[in-house]
């Protein structure tokens, strides 16, 4: 964090009022400064409380009520005080036949997409590391998947891979003689040697890796530029080959940034709704929890169940993240 001003540790006053029990009396100018700071922060704090904190609490109360979309007219944030509360919604959503496979699929989707996009990002950054003519232009081009509006990216992929008029299928048919493949509509495909592979799900993961590798690329690229050159000179003198330099100089320097990137991307991919919704609508074996939440909320008009499932989503994510952070911490100690 880059805050230059640090408050003394102790009780925090996120509300905005100046502290009543200051340990030692602050000077009037100090107090005026603090009051001005809270005033400047007030809109940001208000937005956070009203649009983030309160909804989080409402989500809990909604998940405990039986609530249908048509009954919303009578809904009040504090209606749960009179309502009959219970875990029916949680029983309902976890009792679905597909529930556990949906949870598993969500974890796999997030993990695979994250790892692949990081690998691609590191690979691209290493390839682009040393200057060459036109590097600036190539670098800008590599950021395109991330910058492209998601609807445009998804629509282009669906068109390219379409079984009727997709260019990929047309080329595959002409050059390799394969029969047309419905990448986003076919649940599994039998490949020689490997056997049955989940097709639509793999394609969605490929899209995710493609779309987010530039994000890893920018960060890794920036980090690479900051590695001191003399480390490589020393390594060269010691007789290290290129792969050894990567193993002993570059990779250790990247570990910190990769850990942060993994965390960020995992959280975002785990909660991803838009990519899958736009590509398959959750069909052909690509249904993840976020799609299921949308289904409960809009398709089945059941906000209570949707709220319960969104809490389960957050809980599963927290479990995976805790495991990851523990594992990182243990590895750093070793």
């Amino acid at each position: 964090m880059t805050t230059t001003t640090q408050a003394p540790p102790g009780s925090d006053h996120p509300g905005g009022a100046p502290p009543r029990h200051a340990r030692r009396p602050a000077s009037p100018s100090r107090r005026r400064e603090a009051r001005f700071a809270y005033l400047l922060l007030l809109p940001a704090i208000l937005a956070t409380v009203v649009l983030v904190l309160l909804p989080l609490l409402w989500n809990v109360t909604i998940s405990l009520q039986s609530l249908r979309l048509i009954e919303l007219r009578n809904f009040t944030p504090f209606g749960f005080l009179q309502a009959e509360l219970g875990f029916d919604n949680f029983r309902l959503v976890t009792g679905q036949r597909e529930f556990w496979s949906t949870v598993g699929r969500t974890v796999v989707y997030a993990l695979a997409g994250t790892v692949l996009s990081l690998l691609l990002g590191v690979w691209a950054a290493l390839a682009m590391r040393r200057p060459f003519r036109g590097r600036g232009a190539v670098k800008a081009l590599l950021l395109v998947p991330y910058v492209l509006p998601v609807v445009a990216a998804a629509f282009v992929w669906r068109t390219m891979l379409s079984p009727q008029y997709g260019i990929v299928n047309a080329w595959g048919q002409d050059w390799f003689g394969w029969s047309r493949v419905d990448f986003f509509g076919q649940q599994t495909i039998d490949l020689p040697l490997v056997g049955s592979v989940p097709l639509a799900f793999s394609t969605v993961i490929a899209f995710e890796a493609w779309r987010y590798f530039p994000f890893a690329f920018i960060f890794v690229y920036a980090r690479l530029q900051a590695i001191p050159r003399h480390l490589y000179e020393a390594a060269t003198i010691d007789g290290a080959t290129i792969s050894q330099q990567f193993r002993y100089v570059t990779f250790p320097a990247l570990r910190g940034v990769l850990a942060v990137l993994f965390l960020l991307r995992f959280i975002w991919n785990f909660n991803d709704f838009t990519n899958i919704y736009l590509l398959t609508g959750g069909g052909a074996g690509t249904r993840v929890i976020s799609i299921e939440i949308y289904e409960w909320l809009i398709g089945r008009s059941n906000p209570g169940a949707a709220a319960a499932l969104s809490l389960i989503l957050a809980a599963v994510m927290l479990v995976v993240l805790t495991v990851y952070v523990r594992w990182q911490a243990r590895r750093d100690q070793a």
């Binding site: 964090m1 001003t5 640090q6 408050a7 925090d12 809270y38 704090i45 909660n271 809490l311 989503l313």
Partner: peptide, 23 residues
């Protein structure tokens, strides 16, 4: 500016960015 709870308030607001929008 100097004020009480600065690091907490700043961290809390930025953390929002990591919260799953679906929640």
């Amino acid at each position: 500016l100097r004020y009480r709870g600065a690091s907490f308030i700043n961290a809390a607001i930025v953390l929002v960015y990591l919260f799953p929008p679906l929640v």
